[in-house]
Design a protein around this nucleic acid. Structure first.
Length: 311
RNA sequence: GCCGAGCUAGCUCAGUUGGUAGAGCAUGCGACUGAAAAUCGCAGUGUCCACAGUUCGAUUCUGUGGCUCGGCA
């Protein structure tokens, strides 16, 4: 907790399918507050049903930020998100409302809460490709060895088998002329924060997710992917690895059946849930976990918010 | 009833020329500083169907029984 006149920031975390979006709208109506989405897939106008993005009526019911703000042709990334979110937190506070940062993208939320300063090097596609080609030539463990010589600290915590992160570290070093590790810091949050978590037993969450996938299909998920495929977006969707879209594309390409696609989507979503849990742990003392199955979950959260942020 | 195949991890199966076993999936855990729904790593679990025989030793060989799946009646 920061000083009394620090900017206020309310955060709502929880795994995919936990009901964050709906709850966020409810909370914002009462506070009043405005939603800042921390979901790396809600950013894109083209993605709707398959990402479980709130529908237009829900989005119109309270102010939402950072949803549908870009297209697949102009992808955002952590740096852009962080810059925009910091600006929004200030702006919403200035207007006398409470910003509610909500989403499942752990890295984005952590970057705000821990006040990360990230290497200010935007992605350079050509350089990335060149480094990757180099790695294919000399072997990726040799590439990692190069990183170790240039920045031993970075090499120590990037697994040698993790090509993508090895390439990113080298990209920053080559483009900036500085070590990757000297360009990154973290510190305590500049905001007065309250972090709420929506907690489900794993088994129940899996059941909710299975039901949600069925609902997506009923809402026309296959048609959404089919339209994107017609528009020539298939390769892009596969490259981004957005759960559900590659599986449905495989179905549309007659590589697998719809049942097989659904099974794969369930599996991949569960794996994602487990990875998400690494960012938001039940043992994290800074997160106030609330039982999501409790019918009064919103009231409990409002009580916590009122005691943290008295009017 | 007869013939054949099978019974090993939660599931599908591999394997042990006889020295008590292993992959994938599932499950759990972890890393993460401009692709993050990405990318990458780690881990556990077994009366090897039952009983008897042979053997120093049987999940493995033999016999009997049980169950499952085919085929033939």
């Amino acid at each position: 907790m920061s000083s009394k006149n620090a900017l206020r920031l309310l955060v709502l975390v929880g795994p995919t399918g936990s009901g964050k979006s709906t709850l966020a709208i409810r909370l914002c109506k009462e506070l009043p507050g405005e939603v800042i989405s921390a979901d790396s897939r809600y950013l894109y106008q083209e993605l709707n049903i398959g990402t479980a993005k709130p529908n237009p009526a829900e989005l119109a019911s309270v102010a939402h930020h950072l949803i549908n703000v870009t297209t697949l042709d102009a992808p955002w990334s952590l740096g852009v998100f962080q810059k925009e979110t910091r600006r929004l937190i200030e702006d919403i506070n200035d207007r006398g409302k409470l910003p509610l940062l909500v989403g499942g993208t752990g890295q984005y939320i952590r970057a705000i809460l821990q006040n990360w300063e990230i290497p200010a090097q935007a992605p350079l596609d050509d350089l990335r490709k060149a480094i990757e080609a180099w790695g294919e030539r000399i072997g990726f463990d040799a590439l990692h060895g190069r990183l170790a010589r240039l920045d031993a600290e970075a090499a120590a915590w990037i697994d040698y088998r993790n090509k993508r992160r090895t390439i990113r570290a080298l990209e920053v070093i080559f483009a900036s002329g500085k070590r990757f590790t000297e360009l990154r810091t973290k510190s305590s949050s500049p905001y007065q924060t309250l972090v709420l978590g929506l907690e489900w037993p794993r088994e129940q969450l899996y059941q909710r997710i299975d039901a949600r996938i069925n609902a997506m299909l009923a809402q026309g998920f296959v048609e959404e992917v089919s339209a994107l495929r017609e528009a020539g977006r298939a390769a892009q969707l596969r490259r981004m690895g957005i759960i559900g879209y590659p599986e449905i594309l495989d179905y549309l390409d007659n590589k697998i059946t719809l049942d097989e696609a659904v099974t794969l989507i369930r599996r991949n979503t569960r794996i994602y849930v487990r990875r998400q849990a690494n960012w938001f742990k039940l043992t994290d003392p800074t997160i106030h976990w609330v039982n999501a199955a409790d019918p009064a979950v919103a009231e409990h959260m409002l009580d916590l918010i009122k005691s943290e942020f008295p009017v």
